[in-house]
Design a protein around this nucleic acid. Sequence first.
RNA 1: GGCCCCAUCGUCUAGUCUGGUCCAGGACACCAGGUUUUCAUCCUGGUAACGCGGGUUCGAAUCCCGCUGGGGUCACCA
Length: 564
Amino acid sequence: MTEVVTRFAPSPTGRLHVGGARTALFNWAFARRHGGKFVLRIEDTDRRRSSDAATRGILRSLAWMGIDWDQGPEFTTDDGRTLGGDPNSVGPFEQSKRIDLYNEHMRRLIDAGLAYPAFETPEELEAKRQEAIAAKRGYQYDRAALGIPMPERIARMEAGESHVVRMRMPEEPITVHDEVLGDVTVGPEEFDDFIIRKRDGFPTYHFAVVVDDALMGVTHVLRGQEHLINTPRHVALQRALGFGTPTYGHMPLIFNPDGSKMSKRDKDKAAKKAVRDAGLQEPPVGSIGADEFAAWLKDKTRQLGTDTLSELAGSLGAELPEIDTEDFIEAGYLPGTLANFLALLGWNPKTKNDDGTDLERFDTDYLAGNFDFAGIGKTPSKFDRTKLLAFSADDVQAMDDGVFAEAWHAWASVFDAALTERFSAADMRMLAPAVKQRCKTIRDGRSVVGFALVGDDAIAFDPKAVHKVLIKGERKGLQALKDLRPMIESIDPFTPEQVEAAVSGHAESTGLGMGKVAQPIRVAVTGTSVSPPLGQTLAILGKDSVLARIDRCVASVEAQAAEV
RNA sequence: GGCCCCAUCGUCUAGUCUGGUCCAGGACACCAGGUUUUCAUCCUGGUAACGCGGGUUCGAAUCCCGCUGGGGUCACCA
């Protein structure tokens, strides 16, 4: 029994899409479950679109989710662990550094007549393709290069003539044994002699994948269903090269709730809508020129950079849909929550809880101990952010207050400078119990304490709250607020406990009850009817600020009443 | 369009392989009621699905065929 080896092989052309994150998670879990190894490989053979920054981002996202890789690019986690490395000497793990290896195997194939150089230009091929489309025929390469005698082909290639290398596909059908879908057979007429080495000397995906999986000892390949039709090509390549075929499993894809493909384009879509709703003609931010902005707005297919989009949405107060793992990190989700939710999209533990309900809340440790092919479903799923949010709320509530405070501070130090400027880590610890209760994600903490981040004269009053609490019922609320002012002024020291005691004492002595006393104050100082417990809310602001806000509120409501 | 894959509540799904225990179970959402000084949380209850048509069988969500619908793929991208 050979050791299980799985891999995740992202292409560093952008951020880690949640679909990719799920693929990585499953491959990781499968390796852990079987005590095997998990390899991370960077597929950067498209030199034009790949970048080191993207690679680093992907590594960071994977590590954030709790995925560790045994072999692959080295990475140091926040808590100081080193991931990756090359203990078995099968690296390097960036395909762009493995060209000699590919060429060695490529040469074997060419010498055996199983692959051959071809000299048509991209333009010539494109013309033939268009011709086929016009005639409503499927396009396949016509093997014209095979008309050139083999010695001559080889000689021209060795003389340095610009060429590609094509795989000579066999004439028989190929059956793929898929652990998820069962046997899938595809006939030879479906495949032409596809390109395995590009004009620039880099292998194409198909060739690099097959060589690397074999050389790295990969035994199981779990990937998205979009690769299903590629698999017969890979099997053909494996046979030609004399490699074994790993066990395959193809997973259903993840879609948007409306059934469309979940892609970065959704962000452009949302941003364009926000711009139109705002009636903007000119770019509201400096990072994009007017011409580019107009072109982008007009063209449905045109996309902007991630940062530009965020800036744009931010300036309009619009939300961009979360698509990539980093979006969910920024949105304040916990890694375990995302991993749990993602795992459930396409996999099911088929296990009951003690109360007889289906098990669906589990952590990555559980996944590492129980993940199997049998639990993978065949049906594509839609990404339901509402359910993810419900999971997140549960997980946040289950956090220890201290842990929450730490996570909140860590999150804010990366994503919300205003918050960490206003509150120290100690402040956040004090606030944690009250804030946590009202959070569905870590980011929500911001809105709970948002009132403390704006100036006393900049509080926006929620009209509904003002009406309900202060105006309704002959403005008794407003009167109560005025009566309370001297009492608040006399509180000393101005701590949560003292404030709480003073306010509830006042509620009792006046016979008004807590609701009639606390709510007017809350609305006056926060502008809304929702905030942490009153004592904390006031203590955070400090006495001067509280009094200023009460005065401003009273003045504003009276002015408003005078108008009517 | 060719080829390939798929089909249970609005959504994620259990049940399908090994037909009967399923007038189909769970979760999220939704609706109603309750707890709560507000909001959120929490508790209780409820609405809601086997795509359609043929078979096979005493009996089909489960097996077979067809249809319909959805998706994937047809690059010198991965």
